[in-house]
């Protein structure tokens, strides 16, 4: 998918594994496995919904 060389990364020291990022992802590009959020870069469209929703500020977009 077109992502202009960007991707979403997670800061595991900040993540409180609440699942809010999963709830807003329309691409089903993330999953909360117990307390571990995984992001599927193939499916992710870098739409920023999860970044804007994360209560802890644990998600960010970086240049690849």
């Amino acid at each position: 998918m077109a992502k202009n060389g960007k991707k979403v990364v997670i800061d595991r020291y900040k993540c409180a594994y609440c699942g809010a990022c999963i709830a807003v992802c329309k691409f089903n590009a993330n999953e909360l496995i117990e307390t571990f959020v995984v992001i599927d870069e193939e499916k992710c469209n870098v739409c920023m919904a999860c970044v804007k929703t994360c209560p802890m500020g644990a998600l960010a977009v970086v240049e690849e």
Partner: peptide, 24 residues
């Protein structure tokens, strides 16, 4: 809130940014 069962069954449960409260 992160339900996958709905989506797997064809019920779109994705929330928009105006349909969720982000809480701490």
């Amino acid at each position: 809130v992160e339900s996958r069962i709905g989506k797997l069954a064809g019920i779109d449960t994705t929330l928009k940014l105006s349909e969720i409260e982000s809480c701490v």
